[in-house]
Design a protein around this nucleic acid. Structure first.
Lengths: 338, 338
DNA sequence: AAATATACCCAAAACGTTTCGGATTTACTT
DNA sequence: AAGTAAATCCGAAACGTTTTGGGTATATTT
């Protein structure tokens, strides 16, 4: 593997000059620059980024921490789309992406900070972390520039991008109310997700504004999974048959709720309206097609990468970005039966 | 950021000893080892992998080259599942994954080998590359250990994992023949995909064995996309209305074909049988549910990582792995109408 | 003609590790 | 008591870059 020294020797100059020539500094004459470039090509040189990073103290890599990127998570393409967005922006930059796998076994033996500091990543993007994850505390305490997706923390070195979950949930519930629904259940994620808290707020807000009573017993947690969402729907619909509409905090849970409804012989949307959240791919393919609150998942990732890299290069100062949501009216919601 | 030197100073030993102590060498006494470990913890030390890699000439990273990981590719979760498999195995190893983005613009300015050599990856996994991609030639010519997914090349430093595409396609077509179909069209990918060539062979083989004539005009390319698959189906069904069944080389194209059929008022499966390939998530969600040849995409990625890492660590010598496929009989195929 | 500016170049230190080839002490053999 | 073995330790070189703080000509100004 050829080095800068080999080039220096063959071109008859010092390594300093080679380095400066290849990096486009001005204090090297045009003819030696040409010469060096030619020799470099002849020897099929490629720089050793490790050596460079070592001395420059910047690795030009950003770490990507996705928790739970497993066989099962493929169904929920939320994470995948975010990843695609991150990838898209990063690929246009001078950075590369390093994927950190934080399966639970590894987590115990290596902390978040260790992971990042060993690899000397310049910054890190974190997605899908729970608020009770030990890593989260570390983030705030460490000094590694960090961008959180869907966790609204902010400090000198931590920023975030998210969507307006309160408003999004409000839109969803408002839609149901417009259709005449008054007994509206909610299937939420879990208490350790910021988005769950916010979507709950939106739900309450919409009820409030419409002058409808808030029934805590109309709410059940579905852990963001299809299975648990189905169970939650079962529970809600059996204990409170008067419910005519369900607002689910994720599409996957909404799809679970749809199967529950089917098994309970409640036809969607005539006997029961269901609205989801996320607008995952499956939402347009299940039958009936799922009405949902769409978030720009790709954009979320894209903007996350953009924000972080902007900060790393001191080109920007923003630490926070909130994106819009959009109601996608499909076939799983309808006017309440009189 | 604390270094090995800081530890040495504080513990009153040489850097050599610190290094050897932390790496578990035997020629350091138990008491100094304890001492060093304690000091390391006090100073919150984490090793600099860049420095280590530089001297050891191994970076403990493997590169992942996925071409076309974009907004659109999310629908086709083939790649995503493979990625999940790779990720799963790698996360259990001591390696980390670095994602190389080869969008076309970057490709021109940086070659495949440069990408890998700059980052000094120990090996690389390549997925979704076309046979006419300039990168592919580079792989063979370079000396970087490389694992190809679905491209059956083999040499000193290149290995591959794939599925038995000939047999898989044969199974699909045989299934159609068993249902009584004789005029069977095929929507293939494109000529620059090994899998397309192999699936075509399987198609011909099945026809041969059944004593059915091979009609080249019953074949059209759909580029592996839903759009082009739909177009190909249109063309085939309009020009050859006698066709009663379609074998598609990917589920996405099969889904495209289903919409074409709908628009042409040919009801699946009674008027037209359609069988896909891959068994992507959507296959079970479209209506009617798609009969298809399932491949273990997650396993493909998992085994790819395993094979490569095994080779890197000289624990294995295998350069080739072929996985099985399975016929998933669903609702898009039926007996031919008499 | 002297002083100054400009253009071009370089030696050496630094980044944080690992490892080679001993060196020193202590314990064990003969 | 001398020699050998084992147990611990260490100095210095190496990995391949970038950068600092100059140096030496040549050209330009005064």
């Amino acid at each position: 593997m050829t080095t800068i020294k080999d080039i220096a020797k063959k071109a008859g100059v010092s390594v300093t000059t080679v380095s400066r020539a290849l990096n486009g500094y001005s204090d090297v004459s045009e003819i030696t620059r040409k010469k060096i470039a030619q020799v470099a090509k002849e020897l099929n040189y490629s720089p050793n980024s490790l050596a460079r990073s070592l001395v420059m103290k910047r690795s030009q890599t950003i770490g990507l921490l996705v928790s739970g990127f497993t066989k099962e998570s493929v169904k929920d393409n939320f994470m995948v789309e975010v990843l695609a967005g991150v990838n898209e922006y990063v690929s246009g930059s001078s950075y590369d992406l390093i994927l950190f796998n934080t399966n639970s076994s590894k987590q115990r033996e290596k902390t978040y900070t260790q992971l990042c500091r060993e690899r000397r990543v310049d910054g890190v993007i974190i997605q899908g972390i729970r608020t009770d994850d030990p890593y989260l505390k570390e983030v705030v305490e460490s000094d590694i520039p960090c961008l959180l997706i869907d966790i609204p923390l902010e400090s000198d070195h931590v920023s975030h991008v998210t969507t307006d979950n309160v408003l999004g949930a409000e839109k969803a519930v408002k839609h149901l109310i417009h259709l005449g629904h008054e007994k509206i259940g909610m299937i939420n994620g879990h208490e350790f997700a910021f988005v769950s808290r916010e979507r709950l707020q939106g739900y309450q807000k919409a009820l409030d504004k419409a002058g409808l009573a808030f029934h805590p017993e109309y709410i059940a947690d579905g852990e963001f999974t299809e299975e648990k969402g189905k169970e939650a729907a079962f529970q809600l619909l059996r204990n409170h048959p008067e419910i005519t509409a369900l607002f689910c905090a994720s599409d996957l849970m909404a799809i679970g709720a749809m199967s529950a409804a089917k098994e309970l012989n409640r036809q969607v949307p005539v006997d029961l309206s269901i609205i989801g959240y996320d607008d995952i791919l499956l939402a347009s393919y299940v039958s009936p097609k799922l009405t949902t609150i769409a978030q720009n998942k790709f954009g979320l990732g894209y903007e996350a990468a953009r924000l972080l890299i902007g900060l790393l290069q001191h080109e920007t100062e923003t630490h926070r970005l909130v994106m819009k949501t959009e109601l996608m009216e499909r076939e799983s919601t309808a006017e309440v039966k009189k």
